[in-house]
Lab assay of single mutants.
Amino acid sequence: SPEVQIAILTEQINNLNEHLRVHKKDHHSRRGLLKMVGKRRRLLAYLRNKDVARYREIVEKLG
């Protein structure tokens, strides 16, 4: 489901952010981070168009 995919991506994004705080010059990982953020944004847009209630619920849960 989109909610699960968004939750997994959010966790991976948070982990990668911590990694990049330590390894500032790791541009390869930064590119992966940007791809993940874009994918999460697309999934959220899809969910917002399909079911606003589910969209609001996941945004509330994940912050």
Rank of each mutant, 00 (worst) to 15 (best):
L9H: 01
L16M: 09
E18L: 11
E3G: 04
A45N: 12
E57M: 06
D51T: 01
Q12G: 05
R21N: 06
E18H: 09
R48V: 04
S1N: 10
L20E: 01
E18W: 06
I13E: 00
T10Q: 03
R31Y: 09
V4D: 14
E57L: 06
P2C: 15
E18G: 04
E18M: 08
V4S: 09
V22N: 12
L16R: 03
R40D: 01
L43A: 02
K50L: 15
K24W: 10
S1W: 15
K25F: 13
H23P: 02
Q12D: 03
L62K: 02
K35G: 05
E60H: 12
Q5S: 06
R48L: 09
L20M: 05
Y46S: 08
I8F: 12
Q5H: 05
D26Y: 04
L20G: 02
H23Q: 05
G63N: 13
H19K: 07
V37P: 00
R30V: 09
Y46R: 07
L20D: 01
K25R: 10
H27I: 12
N49E: 13
K24H: 07
R30E: 04
R56M: 14
N15P: 00
K24E: 09
N15I: 14
A45K: 10
V52T: 08
D26L: 03
H23F: 07
K50T: 15
E11D: 07
E3I: 06
P2V: 15
E60W: 06
K25I: 06
A53S: 10
V22L: 14
K61L: 11
L9Q: 02
G32M: 15
V4P: 02
R30M: 11
L20K: 02
I6M: 02
G32K: 15
L33S: 01
R41C: 15
I8K: 11
I6L: 03
E3D: 05
G32H: 15
A7S: 06
H27N: 10
Q12C: 12
V59L: 12
N17M: 15
A7C: 15
I8N: 06
E3M: 05
G32N: 15
E11R: 08
R54I: 08
Q12E: 06
L62S: 02
I6E: 01
H19F: 08
E60K: 11
S29Q: 05
H23T: 04
L34K: 09
R42T: 07
D26F: 03
E3N: 03
V52D: 07
N14Q: 07
N14T: 06
G38I: 14
V59M: 15
K24Y: 09
N15E: 12
R56Q: 13
K24G: 11
L9C: 03
I6Q: 01
E57Q: 08
V52I: 14
G38S: 13
N14K: 12
I13Q: 01
R48C: 09
R31H: 08
G38D: 14
L20W: 03
R41F: 09
K50W: 09
K25C: 14
L34R: 10
H19I: 07
L20Q: 01
R41P: 00
R56H: 12
G63L: 15
R42H: 07
Q5M: 11
L44N: 00
V59N: 02
E11W: 09
L34P: 01
N15S: 12
I6T: 00
L44Q: 00
M36W: 02
L9I: 04
H19W: 15
P2Q: 05
N14D: 06
D26T: 05
A53W: 05
E11V: 10
V4G: 08
R48Y: 14
A45Q: 12
Q5Y: 14
L47S: 00
R31Q: 11
H28C: 13
L62H: 03
L9Y: 03
R41H: 09
R54T: 07
K39Q: 15
N15D: 08
A7R: 08
T10C: 05
P2Y: 14
V22K: 12
A45S: 07
N17H: 13
H19D: 04
L20C: 05
V4R: 10
V52S: 13
R40Q: 03
L47A: 00
L16P: 01
S1Q: 07
L20F: 05
H27Y: 12
T10I: 11
E57Y: 05
Q5A: 07
L62Y: 06
A7L: 15
R41M: 09
R41Y: 10
L47H: 00
K61P: 02
V59I: 14
R30F: 10
K61H: 10
K25P: 04
A45F: 06
L33I: 06
H27R: 09
L33N: 00
R56K: 11
A45L: 10
L62W: 05
V59K: 04
R56C: 13
K24S: 11
S29H: 11
L44G: 00
P2F: 14
I6N: 00
K61D: 04
H28N: 11
L33V: 05
H23S: 05
A53C: 10
G63K: 13
A7F: 15
Q5L: 13
R42Q: 11
S29C: 09
L33Q: 02
L9S: 01
Q5E: 09
E60M: 10
R31G: 07
V52L: 14
Q5C: 11
L20I: 09
R30H: 11
I8H: 08
I8A: 09
E60A: 13
G63D: 07
H19R: 06
S1P: 09
K24F: 08
R41W: 11
S1G: 09
R54S: 09
